[in-house]
Amino acid sequence: MKRKEIFVRYERCTGCRSCELACAVSHTAARNLFGALLGGERPQKRLYVDQVGRVKAPAVCRQCEEPPCVAVCITGAMHRREDGVNVVALPRCIGCWMCAMACPFGAVGRGEGKAVKCDRECLDEEGVPACVRACPTGALVFQTVEEFEAERRLAAAVSLR
Protein backbone atom coordinates (compact mmCIF):
# COMPACT_ATOMS: atom_id res chain seq x y z
CA MET A 1 0.00 0.00 0.00
CA LYS A 2 1.26 3.45 -0.86
CA ARG A 3 2.16 5.64 2.08
CA LYS A 4 -0.15 8.46 3.06
CA GLU A 5 1.12 11.96 3.77
CA ILE A 6 -0.31 14.93 5.61
CA PHE A 7 -1.21 17.46 2.92
CA VAL A 8 -2.18 21.07 3.49
CA ARG A 9 -4.93 22.86 1.57
CA TYR A 10 -3.81 26.34 2.63
CA GLU A 11 -6.88 28.09 1.29
CA ARG A 12 -9.00 26.24 3.86
CA CYS A 13 -6.98 27.02 7.00
CA THR A 14 -8.79 29.35 9.44
CA GLY A 15 -5.91 29.46 11.89
CA CYS A 16 -7.91 27.93 14.73
CA ARG A 17 -4.93 25.90 15.95
CA SER A 18 -7.08 22.88 16.68
CA CYS A 19 -4.42 20.77 14.92
CA GLU A 20 -1.71 22.02 17.27
CA LEU A 21 -3.84 21.24 20.30
CA ALA A 22 -4.81 17.79 19.06
CA CYS A 23 -1.17 17.02 18.25
CA ALA A 24 -0.11 17.92 21.79
CA VAL A 25 -2.96 15.92 23.32
CA SER A 26 -2.12 12.85 21.25
CA HIS A 27 1.33 12.88 22.81
CA THR A 28 0.03 12.63 26.40
CA ALA A 29 -0.44 9.57 28.55
CA ALA A 30 -4.14 10.40 28.97
CA ARG A 31 -4.66 10.85 25.21
CA ASN A 32 -7.54 13.22 25.84
CA LEU A 33 -7.60 16.95 26.53
CA PHE A 34 -9.38 16.97 29.89
CA GLY A 35 -7.47 13.98 31.23
CA ALA A 36 -4.14 15.54 30.25
CA LEU A 37 -5.02 18.90 31.79
CA LEU A 38 -6.40 17.47 35.00
CA GLY A 39 -3.42 15.11 35.20
CA GLY A 40 -1.02 18.06 34.92
CA GLU A 41 0.67 16.83 31.76
CA ARG A 42 2.66 19.30 29.65
CA PRO A 43 2.87 17.81 26.18
CA GLN A 44 4.35 19.53 23.14
CA LYS A 45 2.86 20.08 19.76
CA ARG A 46 4.74 18.92 16.65
CA LEU A 47 3.19 21.18 14.07
CA TYR A 48 2.87 24.93 13.88
CA VAL A 49 0.31 27.31 12.45
CA ASP A 50 1.84 30.59 11.28
CA GLN A 51 0.27 33.58 9.66
CA VAL A 52 1.88 35.84 7.06
CA GLY A 53 -0.40 38.61 5.91
CA ARG A 54 -3.73 36.91 5.43
CA VAL A 55 -2.26 33.52 4.70
CA LYS A 56 -2.59 31.02 7.51
CA ALA A 57 -0.22 28.14 7.16
CA PRO A 58 0.05 24.95 9.16
CA ALA A 59 3.62 23.60 8.95
CA VAL A 60 4.05 19.92 9.60
CA CYS A 61 7.10 17.69 9.01
CA ARG A 62 6.99 16.55 5.39
CA GLN A 63 8.52 13.18 6.35
CA CYS A 64 10.95 13.58 3.44
CA GLU A 65 12.06 10.52 1.51
CA GLU A 66 15.61 11.87 1.64
CA PRO A 67 15.47 13.73 4.93
CA PRO A 68 18.08 16.48 5.43
CA CYS A 69 17.55 16.30 9.21
CA VAL A 70 18.63 12.65 9.23
CA ALA A 71 21.53 13.34 6.86
CA VAL A 72 23.04 16.00 9.11
CA CYS A 73 22.47 14.31 12.48
CA ILE A 74 25.92 13.64 13.89
CA THR A 75 24.86 11.16 16.59
CA GLY A 76 22.34 9.22 14.55
CA ALA A 77 19.54 10.26 16.90
CA MET A 78 17.49 11.51 13.97
CA HIS A 79 16.78 8.41 11.95
CA ARG A 80 14.40 6.83 9.51
CA ARG A 81 12.15 4.29 11.18
CA GLU A 82 11.26 1.04 9.42
CA ASP A 83 7.88 2.47 8.44
CA GLY A 84 9.65 5.34 6.67
CA VAL A 85 8.79 7.93 9.33
CA ASN A 86 11.68 10.14 10.40
CA VAL A 87 11.96 10.30 14.19
CA VAL A 88 14.36 11.27 16.98
CA ALA A 89 15.82 8.72 19.38
CA LEU A 90 15.89 11.04 22.38
CA PRO A 91 18.67 9.33 24.39
CA ARG A 92 21.08 9.97 21.56
CA CYS A 93 20.03 13.56 20.82
CA ILE A 94 22.59 16.09 22.04
CA GLY A 95 20.56 19.18 21.16
CA CYS A 96 22.99 20.55 18.58
CA TRP A 97 20.09 21.71 16.34
CA MET A 98 21.79 20.70 13.10
CA CYS A 99 18.47 19.12 12.19
CA ALA A 100 16.68 22.40 12.86
CA MET A 101 19.10 24.22 10.56
CA ALA A 102 18.79 21.59 7.87
CA CYS A 103 14.99 21.36 7.83
CA PRO A 104 13.67 23.68 5.12
CA PHE A 105 10.20 23.71 6.71
CA GLY A 106 11.01 24.66 10.31
CA ALA A 107 9.39 21.47 11.51
CA VAL A 108 11.83 20.71 14.34
CA GLY A 109 10.97 21.95 17.81
CA ARG A 110 12.75 22.10 21.14
CA GLY A 111 11.67 20.00 24.08
CA GLU A 112 13.75 19.89 27.24
CA GLY A 113 16.96 20.52 25.32
CA LYS A 114 16.26 17.88 22.71
CA ALA A 115 14.71 17.86 19.27
CA VAL A 116 10.98 17.22 19.07
CA LYS A 117 9.22 16.48 15.84
CA CYS A 118 6.29 14.78 14.20
CA ASP A 119 6.54 11.05 14.85
CA ARG A 120 3.10 9.92 13.60
CA GLU A 121 2.56 8.22 16.96
CA CYS A 122 -0.78 9.94 17.05
CA LEU A 123 -2.86 7.79 14.70
CA ASP A 124 -6.40 6.93 15.74
CA GLU A 125 -8.08 3.56 15.28
CA GLU A 126 -8.62 4.37 11.62
CA GLY A 127 -4.98 5.28 11.17
CA VAL A 128 -5.62 9.01 10.78
CA PRO A 129 -3.18 11.46 12.45
CA ALA A 130 -4.57 13.57 15.30
CA CYS A 131 -3.96 16.89 13.52
CA VAL A 132 -5.89 15.78 10.44
CA ARG A 133 -8.73 14.39 12.54
CA ALA A 134 -8.96 17.68 14.46
CA CYS A 135 -9.05 19.99 11.46
CA PRO A 136 -12.62 21.35 11.23
CA THR A 137 -12.29 22.71 7.70
CA GLY A 138 -10.43 19.97 5.89
CA ALA A 139 -7.30 22.10 5.51
CA LEU A 140 -5.28 19.08 6.56
CA VAL A 141 -5.85 15.83 4.68
CA PHE A 142 -4.20 12.43 4.98
CA GLN A 143 -3.85 10.92 1.54
CA THR A 144 -1.41 9.28 -0.80
CA VAL A 145 0.36 11.63 -3.20
CA GLU A 146 -1.66 10.02 -5.96
CA GLU A 147 -4.98 10.72 -4.27
CA PHE A 148 -4.06 14.30 -3.44
CA GLU A 149 -2.80 15.05 -6.90
CA ALA A 150 -5.83 13.42 -8.52
CA GLU A 151 -8.03 15.80 -6.57
CA ARG A 152 -5.85 18.71 -7.60
CA ARG A 153 -6.16 17.75 -11.25
CA LEU A 154 -9.92 17.45 -10.95
CA ALA A 155 -10.15 20.85 -9.28
CA ALA A 156 -8.05 22.34 -12.05
CA ALA A 157 -10.23 20.70 -14.68
CA VAL A 158 -13.39 21.99 -13.06
CA SER A 159 -11.97 25.49 -13.09
CA LEU A 160 -11.63 25.25 -16.91
CA ARG A 161 -15.35 24.73 -17.41
Binding site: L33, R133, P136
Partner: peptide, 9 residues
Protein backbone atom coordinates in the same frame (compact mmCIF):
# COMPACT_ATOMS: atom_id res chain seq x y z
CA UNK B 1 -16.93 16.89 15.62
CA UNK B 2 -14.16 17.53 16.38
CA UNK B 3 -15.12 20.37 18.68
CA UNK B 4 -12.62 23.12 19.35
CA UNK B 5 -10.35 22.38 22.29
CA UNK B 6 -9.90 26.05 23.14
CA UNK B 7 -13.64 26.47 23.52
CA UNK B 8 -13.95 23.22 25.42
CA UNK B 9 -11.45 24.38 28.00
Amino acid sequence: LPQCGFGET
